[in-house]
Design a protein around this nucleic acid. Structure first.
Lengths: 352, 352
DNA sequence: CGCTCTATCTTTAACGTTAAAGTAGTGTAG
DNA sequence: CTACACTACTTTAACGTTAAAGATAGAGCG
């Protein structure tokens, strides 16, 4: 920029104004500035320097604790991102996917949040005590949290997971089921675990979503007089079809065999159905299975999945708008609960 | 940072070193720096200022000309992004989705590229003459182009679309087809068009991918002695199932009715099949349909789709690695062709 | 005792911009 | 002819950091 200014013997400020405030200089000079810039290979004000000076980057960050590429495996996360991106774009802001890098040391994970050049964060599906969160909080940037009320003052978006879990469980009770199994994704971030989780592990859950859903299942089953401690809860180290298959392999061997399986995600549910079929059980005649989230695939699977519907894209959009509103120094509501709905499809039936 | 330094009566440089070069000061002082920082609410070196000083942001940008949210509608794009994100993360870099905003003015679109605080770009599916590209080139940042050789010196990744188009066309010829129809997505960015595209419009295509595929179809059909000008080419203003349905509505009314339809994407092909079914035509008995890209849905549709397979996630990874290599000032190959494969499934059959 | 070494900190000078305030010169109204 | 506004620029002073080079003091050594 200085070179351009010298070349024209004007002050750098005039060059800056040519780009930012056309009304501050004559049109003819402005054109000469652009020509000279072109000739000297100057591409316009440097975005980083501008960000420093203006104290804003026009970027919002999405904080994951998973590897970035996992974010693209899950239909629900993609829809969320889509909605969030739409809101960001509407506000003229770009989206930064901050690499969280599961498996790296806590310091590295924290520094990912500390080093992100953004004006605000959205925190997606991260354990309560993750150092990433502490680091993000320290930045004192506007923040929105998804699915997990994490601090009183930080706006969050999500559904009432516990109520949703209660509703889907009640549905199965109404169908006459008495023998239940549960397939959960990660319960606690203290070491990935793959196997049956006893009540003490369940209680130690650091993932609010997991905890809320399990609590919902439990509440309704206990209301119905069932003993929760006898309900096998299989914890998978993630949420995929393959892990659901593995979990079902264990649960379906138990006696008495469950007639209904509650899963914390559709992906897991689809895996459970797969394994049930392989074992010669037909769904829903021999086994009812319910999911959670209502991903697009749930509608077209065989049988189609009974599940809790929530609008992931809208969740993303709301999160985006909440963040943008904060960046504009507007006050926003802290608690933003979205509706959910039990969708009864073909994977649940009367207990036989 | 200055406040922290003053509080401890050391120089700001020492505080900086506490974060960046632990070996440059005593461990005890370093701890005191961190304590004081915590107490004063200093979250560590500002990423923007650091980027300015170091002349790197650790961010790579993805340039779209579409609205950001469209990027999440297409399975192929998502897979690409997944692969790209994986490569970026491996290199410790974050991903910026730069809002391109279709429909905005050319100046705004160019400024999106000019204002992105990134160390490098990947250009995805943008028209050759889009101002976005010119703006990006002006930045003189490392760049990778996907699917479209755009300048001699800029590395690109993609398949040989023309060869792939030839192969899938030959497949249909081998099955005895003689009456063809083509469903294309956008041919030229000069105004979105929805209808039959005559040869002159085809020739004016500014989207290299579109052009290459059409050229491939044409070459093989002409080799077989068919007259390309008599083959109806329907141009859709995008790539979705709904647009494919619309196009098929027109093409299937023509006499002689095509017995084979070549489409430029699986989404379009799925739409064509939908409409064919609605018209009482069965696929593949009455009509053969081929797609392009082999998105996950192609495998499970009814009938499953004959299409050209390419590995979108790998394309993303390669693009990411090429970009990272350039950032490290390594030399990279300009031409990076990936393999493709004709996958024959149930949507094509002998001409009846 | 002077000499080099090492560890620990400091000084200087950018990185590239722009908000805010200032300065001419020109026109225009009273 | 003074006062005042207006246009078209310029000056100043940050924004928050860090690379590179410099300074100081005590330790080790012959």
């Amino acid at each position: 920029m200085r070179r351009v200014a010298e070349e024209l013997s004007v002050s750098p400020m005039t060059v800056s104004n040519a780009y930012n405030r056309p009304d501050q200089l004559s049109e003819s000079l402005r054109q000469r500035v652009f020509e000279t810039a072109e000739r000297l290979g100057y591409a316009g004000p440097d975005p980083v320097a501008r960000s420093l000076r203006r104290q804003k980057t026009n970027l919002v960050g999405v904080l994951y604790s998973n590897a970035l590429s996992y974010a693209f495996d899950d239909a629900a996360q993609i829809l969320f991102l889509k909605g969030f991106a739409a809101a960001a774009e509407e506000a003229g802001m770009g989206l930064v996917l901050v690499p969280g890098s599961v498996g790296t040391s806590p310091e590295e994970r924290a520094s990912a949040a500390a080093d992100a050049a953004v004006d605000g964060f959205v925190v997606y599906s991260i354990a309560e005590n993750d150092p990433l969160i502490e680091a993000a909080l320290r930045r004192r940037l506007p923040m929105v949290v998804v699915d997990q009320p994490l601090q009183d003052s930080i706006p969050f978006v999500g559904i009432d997971d516990e109520a949703a879990a209660r509703e889907v469980t009640q549905h199965l009770l109404n169908l006459g089921h008495e023998n239940f199994g549960v397939v959960s994704f990660t319960i606690s971030e203290t070491g990935l675990y793959d196997g049956l989780a006893d009540p003490s592990r369940q209680a130690s859950s650091t993932f609010p979503v997991t905890r809320a859903r399990l609590t919902g299942y439990r509440a309704i089953l206990e209301d119905a007089g069932l003993c929760w401690d006898e309900v096998p809860v299989y914890e998978c180290p993630g949420s995929s079809k393959a892990l659901g298959q593995e979990a079902a392999g264990i649960l379906l061997c138990r006696r008495p065999r469950p007639t209904a399986i509650l899963t914390l995600s559709d992906q897991l549910a689809l895996g459970v159905i797969e394994t049930a079929k392989e074992c010669g059980l037909s769904v829903p005649e021999d086994l009812s299975v319910v999911g959670f989230d209502d991903i697009p695939e749930a509608k077209v699977s065989t049988p189609p999945l009974t599940t809790i519907h929530q609008d992931h894209a809208e969740k993303g959009e709301v999160a985006g708008r909440l963040l943008v509103a904060q960046l504009r120094e507007e006050k926003v509501r802290v608690e933003n609960l979205l509706p959910f709905e039990l969708i009864v499809r073909g994977s649940t039936n009367q207990s036989s």
